[in-house]
Amino acid sequence: MKISFSPCPNDTFIFHAAVNGIISDAPELDVTYADIDITNHLAAQPDGPDILKVSYAALPWIQPDYALLPCGGALGRGCGPMILVNQEESTQLDPRKLSGKVVAVPSERSTAYLLFRLWSAQNVPNGIGEIVVLPFHDIMPAVRDGKVDAGLVIHEARFTYPDYGLGCLVDLGHWWETDTGLPIPLGAIIAKRSLDIDATIHWIRQSLEYAWKHPQVSQDYVLEHAQEMSPEVAQSHIDLYVNGFSRDLGEEGYHAVHALLTRAAQENIVPPIDVEALRWDRS
């Protein structure tokens, strides 16, 4: 079975036991490790992998033979993307002055980008000047070196941006939670409907439960794929992005996904989508 997810610690932590044959119910997995911008586009292709980790923001473009699973993804509070600028500017720059500026983003089909677009529609009257898509690990150096005016960052950048001499202009997660009262939908797990979906959900949850019960077992695997991340940062990443929503989205999680995609469609950022039709465990 072909599966694609990112090399980020939350994904490798969740899927370690399944990938390495520890979960007897899991099929043999052929893994492709890929940045979220790559998996988002793979999901839009008719010959994409059987199971993928994608951004919730990419759901309007996925192939109709995929179903949204209630487990294995990333959704939570206090874990949203941030807009970074050089540290000296972060305490002086009015967000409205991003008008006409160049901003680097990790993907145009990411929750981070959707939140950025929704926030900027309210707070940057004349609009952003130019959007540049860069791999997320290149964004902070680009801001530091003055190649772009600001950068939209995700993942472990929440913990490491001061090392680059950068400051946070806006925490978009805080903005979203304050504005809606809802958690932030970040990464989703989708699977082809031709699979035994209930069995797939079962072994993903088994892999997650094993990781929680035996966190040390996956450490070498996590760090191997963590792009030279320190063990401390990798653990902070896991603690932030792997939570109860990773086991089960629940109605609150689905409501957050619906709210994000509905608001984005109303702003003509994404096509309209019926989230209820996409979810596998609908009643």
Rank of each mutant, 00 (worst) to 15 (best):
L59W: 12
S99A: 15
I51Q: 08
Q92T: 13
P64K: 14
Q92Y: 11
K97Q: 15
G78F: 01
I51P: 03
P95K: 09
D47S: 11
L84D: 07
L59D: 14
I51V: 15
K53C: 06
P49Q: 01
V85G: 08
D47R: 08
V85N: 10
L68I: 06
A57F: 05
V85Q: 08
P46I: 05
V54L: 09
I83T: 03
S90P: 13
L75I: 05
K97S: 13
I51H: 11
K101L: 15
L68N: 08
Q63C: 05
P60V: 07
I62Y: 05
Y66W: 03
E89L: 15
G76N: 05
W61M: 12
G80P: 10
L52Y: 00
C71N: 11
A58F: 00
G80W: 03
L52D: 03
K101M: 15
A58Q: 03
L84R: 10
C79W: 00
L59M: 14
C79E: 00
D47A: 11
D94E: 06
K53P: 05
L98V: 12
A67N: 02
P60C: 09
S55L: 01
A67H: 04
Q63V: 03
P60A: 03
G78D: 01
P46E: 06
L68K: 08
P49R: 03
L68V: 07
A67Y: 00
Q92W: 08
M82W: 15
A67T: 05
M82S: 14
P46R: 10
G80E: 08
A74T: 15
T91N: 10
G76F: 01
K97N: 09
E88F: 14
G78Q: 02
G76V: 02
S90V: 12
K101C: 13
A44L: 02
L68G: 04
I51W: 07
A44K: 04
L93C: 00
R96Y: 14
P81M: 02
D50K: 07
A43S: 15
A44P: 05
L59K: 14
Y56I: 00
D50G: 08
W61S: 14
P95D: 08
D65L: 07
L98W: 09
A74P: 11
P46Q: 11
Q87A: 15
D65S: 09
D50R: 05
G76D: 02
L84G: 11
A44H: 04
L52I: 06
A57L: 04
I51R: 05
A74Y: 08
E88D: 14
P64L: 11
V54T: 12
M82A: 14
R96W: 10
C71T: 10
N86L: 14
L84I: 13
L52P: 04
Y56W: 01
A74N: 13
K97W: 12
W61P: 14
L84H: 12
C79Q: 02
P49A: 10
T91E: 13
G80D: 09
L52R: 01
A57W: 04
W61E: 12
D94M: 01
S55A: 06
